[in-house]
C-alpha cells in the first residue's frame, strides 16, 4: 500500500527582523533545500512512498522536487499560491484528507498555520531557526525516517505522537469579535503596531496564555516556565500578566529570569500567574496593544477585551526519537 507524506517548506521562515534585533540565526533557502532533500532521503526508509509538496512562488519547492530521489513519487499539491501563511493552511487542509503524515520545515508560525487545518494527521515539525518553541532542530533525514515509519503504520501513530494544546483568542470590541487561534503562546503586547511582527522588546509584554511552558523554551513559554512546567499535551495552560512599570498590583510580583528572545536573558516581574483548565478564560483589557501569536505580532487592538482560553485540540506531533527507537526495538533497522 502506498504511503502518502505531505511536505510543507516555508520559504519565508527564518528571515524576519530577529536577525537584527535578536540573536536568531539565519536559515537561508539553500539550507532549507538541503534539509528538505534530507527529509526525502529519510522517507525512502519505507517502501512505496508518495510525497505531496506544497508549491511556492520562490522556486524553492521546484528545486526540492527536481532533486528528489527517484524511488519516491513526488508531486505538487494542486493549489493557488498566495505567498503568505495562507499557503501552509491550504496545503495542510489538503493533507488532512490525503496524507498519512506531514513534515513541516519552518518555525512556530508555520507549524501553527499547518495546525489550523491538519486535523489528526501526524506532524513532524522541523525547526529551520533557533527561536522556536514547537518545532525542534532535528536532522532532516532522521525526521523523514520518522515520518515514513509513522505514515506507513510501521509505528502506530497513537504510540509516537502527542496532541499539542492550542489557545483560542477572542478579541472583543464594541461591535465585533475577532477569533484567532494560537498553538503554543498568545501574548498581549504594549506596542502600537503589528510592524515587523517579531517581539522585539521583552518590556512590551503585558501578559499572555501558553499551552506549554518550560524554562528551556524561549519567549512567553519561557517566562511561564520559570514558575511552572506545563507539558504540551497537559490539558489547559498557564496564564500570566507582568507587573508593568508604574503599575501596582494587589500582591507583590514574583521576579523571574527567562530567555525572552534569543540572546537575551531577561528579568521580568510577574504580577500574577495561574494554571488554567481546558477552556478556562484569561482576559486582558487593552486600550492600545497588539496580540502576538506564537511569537509573532498578529493583530492590533484598540479599546477591546482580549479573551484567551487553552483548548486541547491541537495537532498530533510526532516524537521523532521515540518513533525511531520503537522501530529499532521492533527490529526494523536490522537486515537479515
Amino acid at each position: 500500500m502506498t504511503t502518502t507524506i505531505g511536505l510543507v517548506v516555508n520559504p519565508a521562515a527564518g528571515r524576519d527582523i530577529r536577525r537584527l534585533t535578536g540573536g536568531a540565526s539565519v536559515s537561508n533557502n539553500y539550507a532549507k533545500r538541503r534539509t528538505a532533500g534530507c527529509v526525502l532521503a529519510g522517507l525512502t526508509l519505507a517502501d512505496d512512498v508518495d510525497v505531496l509538496v506544497m508549491p511556492d512562488s520562490t522556486g524553492l519547492a521546484d528545486r526540492i522536487v527536481d532533486d528528489a530521489p527517484d524511488e519516491l513519487g513526488v508531486e505538487f499539491v494542486d493549489m493557488t499560491v498566495t505567498a503568505s501563511g495562507r499557503d501552509s493552511r491550504t496545503a495542510a487542509a489538503h493533507f488532512a484528507d490525503h496524507a498519512d503524515a506531514v513534515v513541516v520545515l519552518g518555525g512556530d508560525g508555520t507549524t501553527r498555520d499547518v495546525a489550523q487545518t491538519i486535523g489528526d494527521v501526524p506532524v513532524v515539525s522541523i525547526s529551520t531557526g533557533t527561536n522556536n518553541v514547537v518545532p525542534t532542530p532535528v536532522d532532516g533525514t532522521v525526521a523523514g525516517a520518522a515520518a515514513a515509519l509513522v505514515g506507513s503504520g510501521a509505528v502506530p501513530a497513537a504510540e509516537a505522537t502527542t496532541r499539542h494544546g492550542t489557545i483560542e483568542v477572542n478579541v472583543v470590541r464594541a461591535e465585533q469579535t475577532t477569533v484567532i487561534r494560537g498553538l503554543a503562546t498568545v501574548g498581549v503586547l504594549d506596542r502600537p503596531f503589528v510592524g515587523t511582527r517579531a517581539i522585539l522588546d521583552p518590556s512590551d509584554i503585558v501578559g499572555g496564555v501558553v499551552s506549554r511552558s518550560s524554562p528551556a523554551e524561549i519567549g512567553l513559554s519561557g517566562i511561564a516556565g520559570g514558575l511552572v512546567t506545563h507539558r504540551p499535551d497537559d490539558p489547559g495552560g498557564v496564564g500570566f500578566r507582568l507587573a508593568r512599570d508604574g503599575e501596582s498590583g494587589a500582591t507583590a510580583p514574583t521576579t523571574v529570569r527567562a530567555i525572552t528572545v534569543p540572546g537575551r536573558l531577561s528579568t521580568v516581574d510577574v504580577a500574577e500567574h495561574r494554571v488554567l483548565d481546558d477552556g478556562e478564560d484569561y482576559a486582558f483589557e487593552v486600550d492600545r496593544g497588539v496580540v502576538s501569536v506564537d511569537g509573532e505580532r498578529e493583530h492590533e487592538v484598540r479599546n477591546g477585551t482580549v479573551r484567551l482560553r487553552p483548548v486541547s485540540d491541537g495537532p498530533r506531533l510526532v516524537d521523532v526519537e521515540s518513533v525511531l527507537e520503537r522501530a529499532a526495538s521492533d527490529g526494523r533497522f536490522r537486515l537479515g
Partner: peptide, 25 residues
C-alpha cells in the same frame, strides 16, 4: 536566492525581509 535579504550573509551584516505593504513593518 529566494529571499534577496539572504545576500546580507555574504557581507556579515544583518539581513531580513519585511512586509512592504505594511507601513508599520
Amino acid at each position: 536566492v529566494q529571499n534577496l535579504s539572504e545576500t546580507a550573509e555574504a557581507y556579515n551584516i544583518p539581513g531580513f525581509t519585511v512586509d512592504g505593504m505594511d507601513i508599520t513593518a
